[in-house]
């Protein structure tokens, strides 16, 4: 997939653990790890909204487009 998820970079910047993020969004850690490893096929706007709200960032900060 040409879309790369840089969620762990943002998590490191905010000094937050992924367990805490998953808990605050309301998804399981398994699903969050699917998102982080890039196995996810789609992301709901509601989930994206919550991630941006909690990490205080823009969608562009956690995602990147790289041409193959």
């Amino acid at each position: 997939m040409p879309i790369i998820v840089n969620l762990d970079v943002m998590l490191a910047k905010r000094k937050m653990r992924s367990n805490e993020l998953a808990e605050r969004i309301g998804i399981t850690t398994a699903n969050l790890s699917i998102l982080k490893t890039g196995k996810a096929k789609a992301i709901r706007f509601s989930t994206l909204e919550l991630i941006c709200e909690i990490l205080e960032c823009q969608p562009g900060d956690i995602m990147e487009f790289v041409a193959e």
């Binding site: 998804i27 699903n31 969050l32 699917i34 196995k39 096929k41 789609a42 992301i43 709901r44 989930t47």
Partner: peptide
């Protein structure tokens, strides 16, 4: 079904 499961 797979697509639905992999939608976060």
């Amino acid at each position: 079904k797979e697509e639905n499961e992999l939608t976060i």
